[in-house]
Amino acid sequence: MSEAPKYDVFQAIADPTRRQLLSLLSRQEMPVKEISGHFPMSRTAVSKHLHVLSSAGLVRERKVGRETRYRLDPEPLQELQYWLNYFEQFWDNKLSMLKYYVENEGNRTAE
């Protein structure tokens, strides 16, 4: 029997619905029924998104009676933060070059 695919943080947050789910769950723990009320899709579709988030470690499940409640686990987002921090240096460099270009072109057209 094969194991279900494991999603990474980048795959999990690639979908806008899953990003909205993370935002929603950052406020409080919720059951699927309550979560589904925030989205224009079936409970099954919401459950599939929650499965991807759970597989990536971004969401934790907790059984309370017959109900499963979900909550955000932000720790795996640090992987994303490290990745973004590394590439921020390139954005800063490009923005500095753009600023220099715009300021110098502005001086040339004013002459």
Rank of each mutant, 00 (worst) to 15 (best):
S23E: 13
V46C: 06
I13L: 06
E88D: 15
H51I: 09
Y86V: 15
G37T: 06
P40M: 01
L21P: 05
L24N: 09
K33D: 00
Q78G: 12
L95K: 11
I35Y: 00
T109Y: 08
P5W: 03
E34M: 06
R69A: 04
S55Y: 07
T68Q: 05
A12G: 04
R18K: 02
L58Q: 06
Q78W: 11
K63M: 07
A45Q: 05
P5T: 00
W83Q: 13
Q20F: 09
E61L: 03
L21C: 04
T68W: 09
E3T: 04
P74R: 11
Q20H: 08
F10M: 05
L72Y: 09
T68L: 10
F39L: 01
A45H: 01
Y70H: 00
R69S: 07
L58E: 03
L53Y: 04
Y86R: 14
R66V: 11
H38V: 07
R18Q: 05
A4H: 03
K99P: 08
V9Q: 03
G65R: 08
E61H: 06
L95T: 14
R19D: 09
Y70T: 02
T109G: 14
L50P: 02
R19W: 09
N107M: 12
N93C: 08
S36K: 00
G106F: 05
F10W: 11
E67G: 13
E111L: 09
L25V: 05
Q81R: 15
G57N: 02
K63P: 04
E79S: 07
Y101Q: 13
T109A: 15
R108P: 10
Q28I: 13
L80M: 06
P40D: 06
P31T: 05
K48L: 00
D92R: 14
V32I: 08
F90K: 12
A45R: 00
R19P: 15
H49R: 01
L25F: 08
D73P: 05
E111I: 03
A12M: 05
R43T: 01
F39A: 03
Y101D: 15
D15P: 01
L98M: 12
Y82P: 13
F87W: 12
Q20N: 10
L50F: 02
G37K: 00
S54M: 11
V64D: 07
R71S: 10
E111M: 07
S47V: 06
L95I: 15
A56G: 03
Q78F: 10
Y82R: 15
T109I: 11
G57L: 07
L53N: 00
R69T: 07
N107S: 10
E105K: 14
Q89I: 13
L53E: 03
Y100D: 14
V52M: 04
M30W: 09
G65F: 04
G106V: 12
D73R: 15
L80P: 06
P5I: 02
E3S: 11
G65K: 02
D92T: 10
P16T: 08
H38L: 02
E67Q: 06
A14C: 08
K63A: 05
I13K: 02
A45Y: 07
M41E: 02
E61K: 09
P74G: 09
E29F: 09
V64W: 14
M97Q: 12
F90T: 11
W91E: 13
P74S: 11
S23D: 15
D92F: 15
K63R: 08
A45I: 01
W83M: 13
